[in-house]
Design a protein around this nucleic acid. Sequence first.
DNA 1: CCGGTGGGTTTTTTT
DNA 2: AACCCACCGG
Length: 751
Amino acid sequence: MGDPASSLHLTGLNTNQLEATSHFEGPLLVLAGAGSGKTRVLTARVCHLIQEFGISPEKILTVTFTNKAAGEMRERITKLLGSEPIGMWMGTFHAMGARLLRRHADRLGWDRSFSIFDSDQSLRLIKSVQEELGLDLKRWNPKAIRAEISNAKNRLEDDKTFQLETQSGSELFIRTVGQVFSAYQEALQAQDAFDFDDLLMKPVELLESHRDLLEHYRGRFSFILVDEYQDTNRAQFRFVELLARAHGNLMVVGDPDQSIYAWRGADVRNILDFETAFPSARVVPLEINYRSKELILSAANAVIGENVNRPKKILRASRKGGDKITLVETSNEKDEAQWIVSEIQDQIHSTQGLSICDCAVLYRTNAQARALEDAFLRARMPYQVVGGLRFYQRREIQDVLAYLRLISNPKDKTAFDRIVNYPRRGIGHTTRKHLTRWAVDQGVTMLEAAGRADEVPGIRTAGVRGLKQFADLMRRLSVRATQATIGEMLEGLVEDINLIKHLNNEGPDGEDRVRNVIELIAGTLDFDATLAQTIEPDEIDTFTELDLFLQEVALIADLDGLDPGSETVTLMTLHNAKGLEFSLVFIAGLEEGLFPLSRAYDEADALEEERRLFYVGITRAEDKLFMSWARQRRRAGDFTYGSLSSFVSAIPDKLLEYRKSNWLSPGPYSKPIAVQNRGYKISHEQDEAFDMNQDSPGFVLGERVIHQTFGSGAVIEISGFGRDMKVKVKFDDVGEKKLLLRYAGLEKDWP
DNA sequence: CCGGTGGGTTTTTTT
DNA sequence: AACCCACCGG
Ligand SMILES: Nc1ncnc2c1ncn2[C@@H]1O[C@H](COP(=O)(O)OP(=O)(O)OP(=O)(O)O)[C@@H](O)[C@H]1O
């Protein structure tokens, strides 16, 4: 045992926190509310295991929600211990899965330099599979199919299981998904690729089907810790269970009230039933919130108390008092954004030591960031947006990365398809068709076929030239890849294909794109695989730097880009805010229909999840919380008229301070509302929205209707009202669909 | 083969 | 409003 005086990680912990931290063997559940120190305890326990119980770091596996969280935790641990926990595996489930697969993918029939497809690439592949199967993209929404496949994988159902379970009695849509699923999975394997969900599902398959590996990793990871356990799905549970079942040294930490990912397969029962799954579990509650002022916490508790479906738990504030929560009514989203910006300015001026990096603006949908950004730009206040369109998802970045992927994995047909004609090489639809057919016949990769384009029947000379040119280029790049660093390679690539010039010729957005590409190169110049923490010292030679670079890039999450030290206000969705804390928090867009989102009205579970999201938002605030809503908001082209979110009514009046924006409470210098609003055109749809009942045909349950694409069917459910009115129709051919009445263009079907 | 145009669809949250 | 796709003329 270490010297107690050196046990830095224990200082300041309360009794329960200490109990959890010093727990040694056997299952441990820390189920506690927001800001009670769950993450801190988990960090401390890792230190304790190493320092007090003498556990070697390489025996420990810690799963966090983001890579960023993993990095920060590693840093904290290093500080607390005075040395780095070398050999410890720490990261997201996806990163751990990828790491495992890098080592053993060959056992499943994949090459170890497999590609990882992000959701965009999955979608592309699904579309191309659909095309091959002759499934119309309009009628069978590829995104819906992707979601269905993704959910299945998160339930650990592979294509065969899925088909078996849905073969009989299922609607046509589901059976179609099954069909696409199989072809999609086949295509993935054919090009040595895994999608995001495979990174969770395949490791389970790997461990279940290979006893020796299971034994090995069970022995290796004698202690397993999982943060944010309330948002794990079935595949993740199984992964943990496989490794931890035998020794039971599993610590999970979470808060059922912060479960906000059920929509992507997370199952809160994982944490609720933990004691059933691991009967000998010790349970430690944490009941003191150290983050938020008492007043904020009271509001949070009142809000979450409205949820029926939850285990009650205690959460008391250690920080007494606090300012009232400011609730501000604004005229529209611009007004709201301006109000927020000027309030931040006021607060910074009036509060000693407060910096703009202590401020965060949270919202329900990414689209809301636009108006906020405008306001911040105009006020010249620095800000950073987390999420939205990611850097690595931008077209020009993906184009460049596709070149790298194809070098790393020549079978990656999705990458090939993306870049074979970018920049233009005169290769079109027909050429591709011939080439694909020939490649399949000969059993060679597309790249090899391109190199032998002159042998392929049916391709015109221009096409042959283009293909050979492309194959040559790739050959040169591959040679260079063996000698140069990634940064150097990228520089060479950009030069070889004249990318900068091409982008500049593209018009107004070109300059931005050029800047992005240059930023990418700059970022790769100092990429160091050993620092990427993805390999063990003895494996360095087994993986190429390129593979690891691509892997890291594929797994980057929105939040990983967040720079907490920089002098900026942070703008992000409520989902991204989970686990973070800020002195000042603004929750924007608190309108009925936006937050909670109108789509959540139909199901009680969905509405409760929205409410938990609100709870997460409120509990991010340390000192002061602001909430705002707008009477009028532009959403996707047309106007919506909102009222204050019903969520707010759960907060006792005495905790709130009501305010109005300048536009709404005209001071001596502000213009009257009527003048301000004149800029907005009153559209026709707006009137429609107001008297939907008169303008749109009223449908009744059981009524027969006809839809342009889906054909005829019967109305089986009606929900929502006004512009949000929805009908569920059971179509004769495509099964059940929920449609937004104002888009659907349904007609009555008179017999 | 390419680029422009126009029509139709979409609106949630993310590893 | 923005995006994606299909179609058409050069
Ligand atoms: N015993 C303690 N004394 C003082 N401060 C503490 C104590 N325990 C935790 N804190 C502080 O409380 C804040 C919240 O801790 P932490 O993030 O670990 O909570 P959490 O339960 O993981 O929160 P959430 O569920 O909201 O993510 C942190 O700023 C942490 O430093």
